[in-house]
Computed example of a mutant assay.
Amino acid sequence: MGQTSSKPSSSPFQNSQLFFKNPSNDQHTPPRPSIFSPLRPPVAKPSNFIPLFNDCISAASSRTQEYLLFKDPEDKFYPSPEVLTQVFLMTYISQSISLNITDSFNCTAMTPEQRILLGADWVWAVLQKPTKNPQIQIAVLVLHLHDKEEAEDDGMPPNASSESVQIAQKESSNKSMYERMVDFCSSIGKDCYALFLFLGKKSDKGNIYGVLSNNFEAAIGKCDQIDRAFIENFFKGSKYLYTPSGMMQAIVAKKEGDSLTLMIKFS
Protein backbone atom coordinates (compact mmCIF):
# COMPACT_ATOMS: atom_id res chain seq x y z
CA MET A 1 0.00 0.00 0.00
CA GLY A 2 1.15 3.55 -0.41
CA GLN A 3 2.05 2.93 -4.06
CA THR A 4 0.25 4.44 -7.00
CA SER A 5 -0.74 2.88 -10.24
CA SER A 6 0.70 5.94 -11.96
CA LYS A 7 2.80 8.82 -10.83
CA PRO A 8 0.72 12.01 -10.95
CA SER A 9 2.53 15.30 -11.31
CA SER A 10 0.84 16.76 -8.23
CA SER A 11 -0.68 15.67 -4.94
CA PRO A 12 -3.82 13.56 -5.29
CA PHE A 13 -5.45 15.55 -2.53
CA GLN A 14 -5.26 19.06 -3.99
CA ASN A 15 -8.49 20.66 -5.07
CA SER A 16 -9.38 20.80 -8.71
CA GLN A 17 -8.57 24.07 -10.45
CA LEU A 18 -10.39 25.79 -13.28
CA PHE A 19 -8.40 27.71 -15.86
CA PHE A 20 -9.96 30.46 -17.93
CA LYS A 21 -8.65 31.92 -21.15
CA ASN A 22 -8.58 35.66 -21.73
CA PRO A 23 -11.07 36.91 -24.34
CA SER A 24 -9.55 36.90 -27.78
CA ASN A 25 -9.12 40.14 -29.74
CA ASP A 26 -9.19 38.26 -33.03
CA GLN A 27 -11.38 40.14 -35.52
CA HIS A 28 -12.17 36.91 -37.34
CA THR A 29 -14.32 35.53 -34.57
CA PRO A 30 -17.05 33.27 -35.98
CA PRO A 31 -20.56 34.81 -35.96
CA ARG A 32 -22.90 34.10 -33.08
CA PRO A 33 -25.59 31.50 -33.80
CA SER A 34 -28.94 32.75 -35.05
CA ILE A 35 -31.65 33.32 -32.48
CA PHE A 36 -33.70 30.91 -34.55
CA SER A 37 -31.24 28.07 -34.00
CA PRO A 38 -32.81 25.22 -32.03
CA LEU A 39 -31.95 25.26 -28.34
CA ARG A 40 -30.55 22.00 -27.04
CA PRO A 41 -29.82 21.01 -23.43
CA PRO A 42 -26.11 20.69 -22.60
CA VAL A 43 -24.85 17.15 -22.90
CA ALA A 44 -21.86 15.87 -20.97
CA LYS A 45 -18.97 15.06 -23.27
CA PRO A 46 -18.28 11.34 -23.43
CA SER A 47 -15.30 10.26 -21.38
CA ASN A 48 -13.37 7.42 -23.00
CA PHE A 49 -12.04 6.18 -19.67
CA ILE A 50 -15.51 5.23 -18.38
CA PRO A 51 -15.98 1.92 -20.25
CA LEU A 52 -12.37 1.02 -19.40
CA PHE A 53 -13.00 1.91 -15.76
CA ASN A 54 -16.03 -0.38 -15.87
CA ASP A 55 -13.84 -3.21 -17.23
CA CYS A 56 -11.37 -2.68 -14.36
CA ILE A 57 -14.16 -2.76 -11.78
CA SER A 58 -15.62 -5.89 -13.35
CA ALA A 59 -12.28 -7.69 -13.09
CA ALA A 60 -11.70 -6.54 -9.49
CA SER A 61 -15.23 -7.46 -8.40
CA SER A 62 -15.10 -10.91 -10.02
CA ARG A 63 -11.77 -11.74 -8.39
CA THR A 64 -12.93 -10.50 -4.99
CA GLN A 65 -16.18 -12.47 -5.25
CA GLU A 66 -14.15 -15.68 -5.52
CA TYR A 67 -12.92 -15.02 -1.99
CA LEU A 68 -16.22 -13.66 -0.67
CA LEU A 69 -17.98 -16.86 -1.71
CA PHE A 70 -15.24 -19.21 -0.53
CA LYS A 71 -16.44 -21.77 2.02
CA ASP A 72 -14.00 -23.85 4.04
CA PRO A 73 -15.62 -27.25 4.76
CA GLU A 74 -13.94 -27.27 8.18
CA ASP A 75 -14.73 -23.61 8.85
CA LYS A 76 -11.15 -22.90 9.82
CA PHE A 77 -10.10 -20.50 7.09
CA TYR A 78 -11.50 -17.41 5.43
CA PRO A 79 -9.79 -14.34 3.91
CA SER A 80 -9.21 -11.47 6.32
CA PRO A 81 -10.66 -7.99 5.63
CA GLU A 82 -7.18 -6.72 4.78
CA VAL A 83 -6.70 -9.49 2.20
CA LEU A 84 -10.09 -8.84 0.58
CA THR A 85 -9.33 -5.12 0.30
CA GLN A 86 -5.94 -5.82 -1.24
CA VAL A 87 -7.36 -8.37 -3.71
CA PHE A 88 -9.88 -5.82 -5.01
CA LEU A 89 -7.37 -2.97 -5.19
CA MET A 90 -4.47 -4.92 -6.70
CA THR A 91 -6.72 -6.49 -9.33
CA TYR A 92 -8.09 -3.07 -10.23
CA ILE A 93 -4.62 -1.51 -10.47
CA SER A 94 -3.28 -4.36 -12.58
CA GLN A 95 -6.21 -4.10 -14.99
CA SER A 96 -6.01 -0.29 -15.20
CA ILE A 97 -2.34 -0.47 -16.16
CA SER A 98 -3.10 -3.15 -18.74
CA LEU A 99 -5.84 -0.97 -20.28
CA ASN A 100 -3.64 2.14 -20.10
CA ILE A 101 -6.13 4.47 -18.39
CA THR A 102 -3.82 5.75 -15.66
CA ASP A 103 -3.05 8.98 -17.55
CA SER A 104 -6.71 10.02 -17.40
CA PHE A 105 -8.00 8.15 -14.35
CA ASN A 106 -5.52 7.66 -11.53
CA CYS A 107 -5.65 5.36 -8.50
CA THR A 108 -3.58 6.16 -5.40
CA ALA A 109 -3.37 3.63 -2.57
CA MET A 110 -3.06 5.12 0.90
CA THR A 111 -0.14 4.46 3.21
CA PRO A 112 -1.05 3.19 6.72
CA GLU A 113 -0.62 6.73 8.06
CA GLN A 114 -2.81 8.26 5.34
CA ARG A 115 -5.46 5.61 5.85
CA ILE A 116 -5.68 6.46 9.56
CA LEU A 117 -5.69 10.24 9.08
CA LEU A 118 -7.99 10.41 6.05
CA GLY A 119 -10.12 7.30 6.59
CA ALA A 120 -9.68 6.08 3.00
CA ASP A 121 -8.12 2.93 1.55
CA TRP A 122 -7.45 4.56 -1.82
CA VAL A 123 -8.38 7.61 -3.91
CA TRP A 124 -9.52 7.60 -7.54
CA ALA A 125 -9.03 10.81 -9.52
CA VAL A 126 -10.14 12.05 -12.93
CA LEU A 127 -7.09 13.93 -14.24
CA GLN A 128 -7.06 17.12 -16.27
CA LYS A 129 -5.05 17.19 -19.45
CA PRO A 130 -2.26 18.06 -19.97
CA THR A 131 -1.51 19.07 -16.35
CA LYS A 132 -2.71 15.78 -14.81
CA ASN A 133 -4.09 17.72 -11.86
CA PRO A 134 -7.04 15.98 -10.16
CA GLN A 135 -10.34 17.33 -11.44
CA ILE A 136 -12.67 14.91 -9.65
CA GLN A 137 -11.70 12.70 -6.71
CA ILE A 138 -13.36 9.66 -5.10
CA ALA A 139 -12.07 8.57 -1.69
CA VAL A 140 -12.88 4.89 -1.08
CA LEU A 141 -13.30 3.14 2.27
CA VAL A 142 -13.90 -0.62 2.17
CA LEU A 143 -16.41 -2.04 4.65
CA HIS A 144 -16.72 -5.71 5.56
CA LEU A 145 -19.32 -7.89 7.19
CA HIS A 146 -19.54 -7.39 10.96
CA ASP A 147 -18.03 -10.74 11.87
CA LYS A 148 -14.93 -9.94 9.84
CA GLU A 149 -14.36 -6.26 10.47
CA GLU A 150 -12.57 -6.11 13.82
CA ALA A 151 -9.43 -4.79 12.14
CA GLU A 152 -11.22 -1.72 10.75
CA ASP A 153 -12.98 -0.54 13.90
CA ASP A 154 -10.26 1.89 14.97
CA GLY A 155 -8.56 2.40 11.63
CA MET A 156 -5.37 0.69 12.79
CA PRO A 157 -3.96 -1.66 10.16
CA PRO A 158 -2.97 -5.10 11.52
CA ASN A 159 0.60 -5.28 12.84
CA ALA A 160 1.10 -1.55 12.32
CA SER A 161 3.41 -0.47 15.13
CA SER A 162 5.68 2.16 13.54
CA GLU A 163 6.05 5.46 15.34
CA SER A 164 4.45 7.43 12.51
CA VAL A 165 1.40 5.17 12.53
CA GLN A 166 1.03 5.52 16.28
CA ILE A 167 1.25 9.32 15.99
CA ALA A 168 -1.41 9.34 13.25
CA GLN A 169 -3.61 7.11 15.38
CA LYS A 170 -3.30 9.43 18.36
CA GLU A 171 -4.09 12.55 16.32
CA SER A 172 -7.24 11.06 14.83
CA SER A 173 -8.54 9.12 17.84
CA ASN A 174 -11.45 11.50 18.44
CA LYS A 175 -13.17 10.61 15.15
CA SER A 176 -14.23 7.41 13.40
CA MET A 177 -12.87 6.47 9.99
CA TYR A 178 -16.23 7.36 8.46
CA GLU A 179 -16.04 10.87 9.90
CA ARG A 180 -12.42 11.33 8.88
CA MET A 181 -13.17 10.49 5.27
CA VAL A 182 -16.22 12.77 5.18
CA ASP A 183 -14.12 15.59 6.67
CA PHE A 184 -11.41 15.00 4.07
CA CYS A 185 -13.84 15.09 1.15
CA SER A 186 -15.79 18.12 2.41
CA SER A 187 -12.54 20.05 2.91
CA ILE A 188 -11.87 19.71 -0.84
CA GLY A 189 -15.37 20.52 -2.08
CA LYS A 190 -18.21 19.14 -4.18
CA ASP A 191 -15.78 17.60 -6.68
CA CYS A 192 -14.58 15.14 -4.04
CA TYR A 193 -16.80 12.15 -3.24
CA ALA A 194 -16.79 9.68 -0.36
CA LEU A 195 -17.48 6.12 -1.52
CA PHE A 196 -18.20 3.45 1.09
CA LEU A 197 -17.61 0.11 -0.61
CA PHE A 198 -19.39 -2.88 0.95
CA LEU A 199 -17.73 -6.24 0.31
CA GLY A 200 -20.89 -8.19 1.05
CA LYS A 201 -23.97 -7.21 3.03
CA LYS A 202 -26.03 -9.16 5.55
CA SER A 203 -28.77 -9.70 2.99
CA ASP A 204 -26.32 -10.48 0.17
CA LYS A 205 -22.91 -11.69 1.31
CA GLY A 206 -21.62 -12.53 -2.16
CA ASN A 207 -21.97 -9.18 -3.93
CA ILE A 208 -20.28 -5.79 -3.74
CA TYR A 209 -22.21 -2.57 -3.20
CA GLY A 210 -21.40 1.09 -2.65
CA VAL A 211 -22.85 4.36 -1.36
CA LEU A 212 -21.32 7.47 -2.90
CA SER A 213 -21.98 11.11 -2.01
CA ASN A 214 -20.37 14.54 -1.99
CA ASN A 215 -22.84 15.69 0.66
CA PHE A 216 -22.34 13.44 3.69
CA GLU A 217 -21.26 16.47 5.72
CA ALA A 218 -24.88 17.64 5.71
CA ALA A 219 -25.59 14.91 8.27
CA ILE A 220 -23.15 16.52 10.69
CA GLY A 221 -25.25 19.68 10.81
CA LYS A 222 -28.27 17.57 11.72
CA CYS A 223 -26.40 15.96 14.63
CA ASP A 224 -26.60 12.55 12.95
CA GLN A 225 -23.72 10.19 13.63
CA ILE A 226 -21.92 9.02 10.50
CA ASP A 227 -21.38 5.31 11.05
CA ARG A 228 -22.03 2.02 9.29
CA ALA A 229 -25.72 1.97 10.25
CA PHE A 230 -26.19 5.48 8.87
CA ILE A 231 -24.59 4.53 5.55
CA GLU A 232 -26.45 1.22 5.21
CA ASN A 233 -29.70 3.10 5.73
CA PHE A 234 -29.31 4.64 2.27
CA PHE A 235 -30.15 1.26 0.74
CA LYS A 236 -33.52 1.09 2.46
CA GLY A 237 -36.24 2.05 0.03
CA SER A 238 -33.79 2.52 -2.82
CA LYS A 239 -35.49 1.53 -6.08
CA TYR A 240 -32.46 1.87 -8.35
CA LEU A 241 -28.84 0.80 -8.10
CA TYR A 242 -26.33 2.36 -10.48
CA THR A 243 -23.69 0.38 -12.35
CA PRO A 244 -20.03 1.49 -12.01
CA SER A 245 -20.15 3.10 -15.47
CA GLY A 246 -23.47 4.74 -14.60
CA MET A 247 -21.90 6.12 -11.43
CA MET A 248 -19.05 7.71 -13.39
CA GLN A 249 -21.41 9.10 -16.04
CA ALA A 250 -23.50 10.74 -13.31
CA ILE A 251 -20.40 12.24 -11.70
CA VAL A 252 -19.03 13.61 -14.98
CA ALA A 253 -22.42 15.04 -16.02
CA LYS A 254 -23.13 16.69 -12.65
CA LYS A 255 -23.28 20.48 -12.64
CA GLU A 256 -20.59 22.25 -10.67
CA GLY A 257 -21.56 22.75 -7.04
CA ASP A 258 -24.51 20.34 -7.10
CA SER A 259 -24.91 17.55 -4.57
CA LEU A 260 -24.98 13.94 -5.72
CA THR A 261 -25.74 10.74 -3.79
CA LEU A 262 -25.88 7.32 -5.44
CA MET A 263 -26.25 3.65 -4.52
CA ILE A 264 -24.18 1.34 -6.71
CA LYS A 265 -23.89 -2.39 -7.33
CA PHE A 266 -20.33 -3.23 -8.36
CA SER A 267 -20.74 -6.96 -9.00
Rank of each mutant, 00 (worst) to 15 (best):
P134S: 02
Q128W: 02
L84C: 02
M90F: 10
P73F: 04
P46L: 11
S98G: 02
P46V: 13
T64V: 06
Q95E: 14
W124N: 08
V126L: 12
N106W: 13
S37A: 15
Y67F: 07
T108A: 05
P38E: 12
A125M: 05
V43H: 09
K129V: 05
I97K: 10
P112M: 08
Y67S: 08
L68V: 11
T85M: 00
F36H: 11
K76Q: 12
P51A: 07
K132P: 02
F77L: 10
L68S: 06
T64Q: 03
S61K: 04
D121W: 06
Y67K: 13
T85Q: 01
R63T: 14
P130D: 14
S62V: 14
L117R: 13
V43K: 15
W122G: 07
D75P: 07
K129R: 12
E113I: 07
S96N: 03
K76V: 01
E113K: 06
D55M: 13
L52C: 09
V43M: 07
P134N: 08
L68G: 09
V87S: 01
D72K: 08
V83H: 05
L52E: 00
T108P: 07
K71Y: 05
M110S: 09
N48L: 06
D72G: 14
S61N: 03
N106R: 04
T85L: 03
F105C: 03
P134I: 01
L127V: 07
P81H: 04
